[in-house]
């Protein structure tokens, strides 16, 4: 991402550029399709080539997520919380790179980008704390009218596809990803199409964190290619449609019906103008609940 020197003279040291790759099963594959696309900064400057993931890459990612789901779901809530908190710890250590990428992608000053990164880190901490509390918020003991002990509690829904918000490349992504993961789901993320680089750097943080391989998988690519595949995939239990362009929404929901996917949608209004810095609106326990099922158990009482 070094600025080009107009004089044409090579600098004394040539920086080593990063290859931005997919993140699937804890590894960093390129696309099996061998395709990429140019990612540009907000001002139009080319930044890097990102992988243009294929439908096969997406199917591989879903299969990987399905394999990782039982182990993640079986961890204790406190353990999942500690794993999410560890993501925050590691993001704090790599913040300069994220700040530079968010600033370039979103056309922000470095101070404004720093605030986006601060809040992204704090959001992991906030959701980490929910791991062992969401059950206490949503669970109930139900005083049924007979001699039964009857209680309800939330459980993870399974594999969740997250179509990340398009404009908020890091904070929007973290704000939608963390609530899906903390409840015990395994996730396949489609990163922002135009601003994918902060998501790829986040995947590098995840790879060195304690998040088990396959629990979070991050793909870059074209929405019009990948969203329909995700929406129609019969082994995806829920889809987060916050980043789905409005014109694709109806088709997505029609595909989602085929296996009764849960669809999480943004509130009415322009999602691209959603204020991700507003804690009161942009971090919600309801967003965790959107990817949880309720299980009710009946048990007789009597000697």
């Amino acid at each position: 991402m070094a600025a080009r020197d107009p004089s044409g003279v090579a600098p004394a040291r040539i920086p080593v550029r990063k290859t931005y790759k997919l993140y699937v099963g804890g590894q960093f594959p390129r696309s099996e399709s061998g395709r990429s696309y140019v990612v540009r900064a907000a001002d139009g400057t080319p930044l890097a080539n990102a992988v243009r993931g294929s439908r096969k890459d997406l199917r591989d990612a879903v299969r990987t997520a399905r394999g990782a789901f039982p182990g993640w779901d079986a961890k204790t809530a406190m353990n999942r919380g500690q794993v999410l908190y560890r993501v925050a710890e590691l993001m704090e250590g790599r913040r300069e790179q994220s700040e530079a990428e968010v600033a370039a992608a979103e056309g922000l000053s470095i101070e404004a980008a720093r605030e986006q990164v601060d809040r992204s880190i704090d959001r992991w901490v906030w959701y980490a704390g929910w791991a062992d509390k969401i059950t206490q918020l949503l669970g109930t003991v139900n005083p049924v009218g007979a001699s039964y002990f009857d209680f309800s509690f939330p459980e993870a829904t399974g594999v969740v596809g997250v179509v990340a918000p398009e404009s908020s490349s890091l904070l929007g992504l973290v704000s939608r990803l963390a609530p899906a993961v903390v409840g015990g789901n395994a996730v396949v993320v489609l990163a922002s199409e135009g601003r994918p680089l902060p998501a790829v750097t986040l995947s590098e943080v995840l790879a060195t964190s304690d998040v088990p391989p396959g629990v979070i998988n991050i793909l870059t690519g074209w929405r019009r290619e990948l969203v329909p595949i995700l929406a129609g995939h019969m082994d995806v239990n829920a889809i987060d449609a916050w980043g789905v362009p409005f014109e694709m929404r109806q088709a997505l929901e029609e595909s989602a019906v085929e296996n009764i996917k849960r669809v999480a949608r943004p509130p009415r209004g322009d999602v691209e103008r959603f204020d991700w810095l507003d804690d009161a609106r942009a971090q919600r326990p309801e967003w965790i609940a959107a990817f949880l099922e309720t299980k009710t158990v009946w048990h007789p009482i009597g000697v």
Binding site: M78, G81, W126, A128, G129, D132, K133, P285
Partner: peptide, 16 residues
């Protein structure tokens, strides 16, 4: 340690 961990997560969620 677990007690500090658990209540740490409540400090910013008291309204819930």
């Amino acid at each position: 340690a677990a007690h500090f961990w658990y209540y740490a997560g409540w400090a910013d969620k008291l309204e819930y």
